[in-house]
């Protein structure tokens, strides 16, 4: 007992462990230094990405006049704004069935099946989707991308929604039924508001995953339906100019704003 207390005392702060601080700095360094450098070099006036010559907004100005890039960015937003809500809606219904649907035989199996795409290598999903679209003969350009994104975003939206549904006390729904609420109004006034934070984070995750996706989009997107990540990739093939840095910085800023907005919102409620 005394020995234990002594040990506790010695390591009462986690950074007292030998090497902890060093490893932590390495870890965060590897994670974030490349991004910081990328952001800094987006303000480089040089034509070459890695040689600093001076501060300038030159590459951002260039982006503003780049119609292809803007079209790609718009495409990305179109896809995300269709795919994320669709995926979130389907994920919400799925979670409701799995968590609140009582006990049915294929419950665990269904749960596994929904989350399996998280484990399947993305390249496999991408090739399979491409072949599938070709097989059934759907060729609707951007709509193909939207369908593909909706499908692979479902498990991402599903995880947080399921988690928050599991954390919700089912007695609350019983109490609502007791207080003259039918099934629909119980869902509307109790389940849905309490599930909202989960649904929002599911949506956020799906949205970011959709905006971010490269491999599947590269396979599925035909000419004219290029999204931003695919466009950036094609730019890099022609040499890394600070324009790539600028566009990446903008995407990063967009993600940060989105996450911050969600964080502020969820703190408020």
């Amino acid at each position: 007992m005394l020995n234990l207390m002594f040990k506790r005392k010695k390591f009462s702060k986690v950074w007292d462990f030998p090497g902890f601080l060093t490893w932590t700095f390495f870890f965060f360094g590897f994670l974030y230094i490349p991004i910081v450098i990328l952001v800094i070099y987006s303000f480089n006036s040089s034509k070459f990405a890695m040689i600093w010559t001076g501060f300038s907004f030159r590459w951002y100005e260039k982006l503003l006049t780049n119609d292809d890039m803007q079209q790609a960015a718009l495409n990305s937003l179109y896809v995300a704004f269709v795919a994320a809500p669709c995926a979130t809606a389907i994920a919400t219904l799925t979670a409701l069935v799995v968590v609140r649907g009582g006990s049915f035989k294929s419950k665990e199996f269904s749960n596994g099946l929904v989350t399996l795409p998280l484990m399947v290598p993305e390249i496999v999903t991408a090739v399979a989707t491409l072949i599938f679209f070709a097989f059934i003969g759907i060729n609707l350009g951007l709509i193909n991308v939207m369908i593909a994104h909706t499908v692979f975003c479902i498990p991402f939206a599903y995880m947080p929604i399921k988690a928050s549904l599991e954390a919700m006390d089912p007695t609350l729904e019983v109490a609502a039924r007791d207080l003259y609420s039918d099934r629909n109004s119980t869902f509307r006034y109790i389940t849905l508001p309490l599930l909202m934070p989960g649904i929002l984070s599911g949506f956020m995750l799906a949205f970011v995953i959709s905006i971010d996706d490269f491999i599947i989009t590269l396979m599925v997107a035909g000419g004219g339906s290029t999204t931003l990540p695919v466009y950036i990739y094609s730019m890099i093939k022609m040499g890394v100019t600070p324009e790539v840095n600028a566009i990446s910085t903008l995407m990063l800023a967009f993600s940060i704003i989105l996450v911050t907005g969600y964080w502020v919102f969820s703190k408020k409620s």
């Binding site: 006390d169 007695t171 609350l172 019983v174 109490a175 609502a176 007791d178 109790i190 508001p193 409620s269």
Partner: peptide, 12 residues
């Protein structure tokens, strides 16, 4: 109407 053991008040 029921008074529940853990009250089950609506937190929102």
């Amino acid at each position: 109407n029921t008074v529940f053991q853990q009250y089950a008040l609506f937190p929102h």
